[in-house]
C-alpha cells in the first residue's frame, strides 16, 4: 500500500471509531459528564468547603485536574477495549485483517479513536467544571503534552486488554479492579504530602500518580512529583505499550489461528 492509501485506511478506521462512540453517546459521553458533576458537587462544593486549602489552592481547584485526567484515562481505555473486543467478538475485525492495511495503521486507527473520545470527554468535563471553579492554565504545553501522552497510553492499554480478553467480563475486570483503584490512589483527591513516608513511597509505583500530578502541574503549577520524571515515565510506558501492541498484532496472537 502506498502512503496515500495507508492514510485513507487510517482515516476510514478513525471515522468508523468516532461514529461508533458518537452513535452511542448516552453510553460513551454522557456518563462521564454526570459522574464528574457529582464529584464536583460532593467532593468539591460540599466536602471541599470543610477541607479548605490543599497545595495552596481551594480544594475544588485542587481536585479538578485529577478529575479531568480520570475522565481521559477511563474513556480512552474504555473506547479501545470495547471497540476492539467487540470487533473480535462479532468477527468484524476480519474485515481489517484480510485487507492490505498494515498492522501499525490498524493500531493507530484504534488508538486515535480512543484519544478522540478521551479528548472529547475531557472537553465536556472541563466545561462542566467551569460552573464550579476557575481553571488557571499554568502551562498550555504541559497540559497538551500530558493529555496526548496519557490518552495514547491508556488507549494502548485498552488495546492490549482487548487482544487478551475472551469475554465481556474480561474487558471490565481491568477498569474495575485495576484502573479505578489506581486512579483513586493516584492523588486525585489528596496530596502525597499528606501520606506517611512509607505510603508516599508506595504511591510512587502507581503510574496514575505521574499522570495526575503532571496534569495538575500544567493547570495549577503544583505537583507532588518531578514533572520531567513524570513525562519520562508516561512517555516510556507509552513507547513500550505501543511496540508490545504492535507485536501482538504482528504475531496474530488471539487474532489469527
Amino acid at each position: 500500500m502506498s502512503y496515500a492509501e495507508q492514510f485513507v485506511a487510517l482515516m476510514t478506521l478513525l471515522r468508523k471509531e468516532v461514529r461508533r462512540f458518537l452513535r452511542i453517546w448516552p453510553q460513551t459521553l454522557l456518563p462521564s459528564a454526570i459522574t464528574m458533576s457529582l464529584y464536583f458537587v460532593i467532593f468539591g462544593s460540599l466536602i471541599g468547603a470543610r477541607i479548605g486549602e490543599m497545595g495552596g489552592f481551594d480544594y475544588m481547584e485542587f481536585v479538578v485536574p485529577g478529575l479531568i485526567m480520570m475522565a481521559i484515562v477511563t474513556n480512552s481505555y474504555a473506547n479501545v477495549v470495547s471497540s476492539f473486543f467487540g470487533s473480535k467478538f462479532n468477527h468484524s475485525i476480519e474485515e481489517l485483517l484480510v485487507s492490505p492495511t498494515p498492522n501499525y495503521i490498524i493500531l493507530l486507527g484504534f488508538i486515535l479513536g480512543g484519544i478522540t473520545r478521551g479528548l472529547l470527554v475531557a472537553f465536556i468535563v472541563t466545561c462542566v467544571s467551569m460552573f464550579f471553579t476557575r481553571l488557571p492554565i499554568y502551562s498550555v504545553g504541559i497540559v497538551i503534552g500530558v493529555v496526548i501522552f496519557t490518552s495514547t497510553l491508556f488507549a494502548l492499554a485498552g488495546f492490549i486488554n482487548g487482544v487478551f480478553a475472551n469475554n465481556f467480563d474480561d474487558i471490565s475486570i481491568v477498569p474495575t479492579f485495576v484502573l479505578t483503584p489506581l486512579t483513586y490512589l493516584g492523588g486525585v483527591f489528596y496530596s502525597l504530602d499528606m501520606l506517611s513516608d512509607f505510603w508516599a513511597g508506595v504511591s510512587q509505583l502507581n503510574p496514575l500518580v505521574y499522570v495526575v500530578n503532571a496534569f495538575r502541574y500544567g493547570v495549577l503549577g503544583v505537583s507532588d512529583v518531578s514533572v520531567g520524571f513524570a513525562f519520562l515515565m508516561i512517555g516510556g510506558f507509552t513507547v513500550i505499550a505501543f511496540f508490545y501492541s504492535l507485536h501482538l498484532l504482528n504475531s496474530g496472537k488471539r487474532l489469527r489461528q
Partner: peptide
C-alpha cells in the same frame, strides 16, 4: 459465517471496506 458489525449500516460496511483497501 457473517462477520460484519450488525450495528453498522449496509452502505457504511462497503464504504469502510473499500477504505481499508485504500
Amino acid at each position: 459465517e457473517f462477520n460484519f458489525n450488525m450495528f453498522e449500516k449496509v452502505g457504511d460496511i462497503l464504504v469502510n471496506q473499500a477504505g481499508y483497501y485504500g
